[in-house]
Design a protein around this nucleic acid. Sequence first.
DNA 1: TGCTTTTAAAATGTCAGACATTTAAATGTA
DNA 2: TACATTTAAATGTCTGACATTTTAAAAGCA
Lengths: 247, 247
Amino acid sequence: MKIDPDNKADLSAQIAQAIRDAIVSGDMIVDERLPSEAELADQFNVSRPTVREALKRLAAQSLIRTQRGAFGGAFVNRLSYEEAYGQQITTATLLLSMNAVSFDVACEARYALERACTPLAAERRTPDHLATMRAEIHRQGQPGLSDESFCASDVTFHRALVDAAGNPVLSYQLAGAVEAMQPLMNMITFTARSREEIVGFHSRIADAIEAKNGPAAQTALRELESYTLHLARGVMEARLHKSRPAG
Amino acid sequence: MKIDPDNKADLSAQIAQAIRDAIVSGDMIVDERLPSEAELADQFNVSRPTVREALKRLAAQSLIRTQRGAFGGAFVNRLSYEEAYGQQITTATLLLSMNAVSFDVACEARYALERACTPLAAERRTPDHLATMRAEIHRQGQPGLSDESFCASDVTFHRALVDAAGNPVLSYQLAGAVEAMQPLMNMITFTARSREEIVGFHSRIADAIEAKNGPAAQTALRELESYTLHLARGVMEARLHKSRPAG
DNA sequence: TGCTTTTAAAATGTCAGACATTTAAATGTA
DNA sequence: TACATTTAAATGTCTGACATTTTAAAAGCA
């Protein structure tokens, strides 16, 4: 594990990259302990603060975890699905907000991914998944539910649908797309009428999944996508008129 | 922007979180300059090295970039798709290798996501996308191509397919799944016969996309998935027998 | 001997201050 | 005016120190 002395980039970045490579390539295995900060500083011929900056970079990516005390140190971290979800969501959220991805594009991606899960979900769904979906549908029908809670319930419903596919990689991939869209969804104020419609779609989806009818679920999802887009466009238009009252 | 003095966690982690929140929530906008390290140190009542560790954490997530010199400093970074791809790929690769996701699961996820793109790709593909796909198919037919190059070409082909959908969010989502699987794919040694078959599937997919026939492309993808799984199982089995020659 | 308490050591976490390097603006000069 | 020089502000790095946490070993005691 060496660094290029001619490189102009930050030493801490180079060191982080060297260690990252060692981890990703499998040279360092899960739970293996890295040399202490002092030892790393010696190895790379840098000071301890520089090494620490490098380690913090890796910690930010959940590649390592640190433990204080004697026989503590930095250890290669087993990346859990939870941590991966978190990073995925942060990245997706930023990507959506900063690149000003349109609602249409995000919506399209989300439902396309979700439809990819439905055939598997229809095949493999457990009573647990169905129960979660039914419970959320029930909650969504409650009057007095805030828009935020309605959206949160919506997310839970769709996650249950995705999880029903029984493929953690798909769940991980979709977590970002679905959760990153939540702020955008929250901007939509759901009238009683639109909630009723959405609950209808959800019921159709749950029914289809229960009946192991993948294509029916896909059709319902497709219609839900159209409806969501329709709602969003209404909101955008209203906002546009509001900001230009003369036009 | 404040931190909890009673919190036991690393100060640098808390500071990073505070700044991250400010960025994600939109309190700090793209290209806005953060206070200098010295000023941040004052604000948070910590030393400069601690602030620096926090900033390195954010830099590792591409949330900020730093610039040296007068009027330099840390700036809120516009997360580019390229950077997001990179992080996505690193995370997905680790997730696959560390959690020992089976080839079957990864394969299933990849093709499910890819099939989600095909209807859009069939609708929107440009001559450019078709040309890329054809070029890669041609390359894959060349004798003397190494397995690594064959796999790389395979990745390029599938990325072109995904990009043809014209939805950057989908492209981003899939980059991880497809590229993270490459090391696993590289383990498979492709015989002349299997290459021929794969090229056949690829041609069918390209033809279907060109003909704007989404369902046909999906069918071909489904068969390609089965075939890939078949090849992989053969390799796994051979490896198993090799490691237990007595059995 | 066996258990509990104390102690010491090793590691990370934090701080202070200094110097090096880079960069762009401000200044001076032909 | 155009170019070279200076200067100031910021990050990058180093040294050395102290604080805190944690564990293992040593010491003390029944």
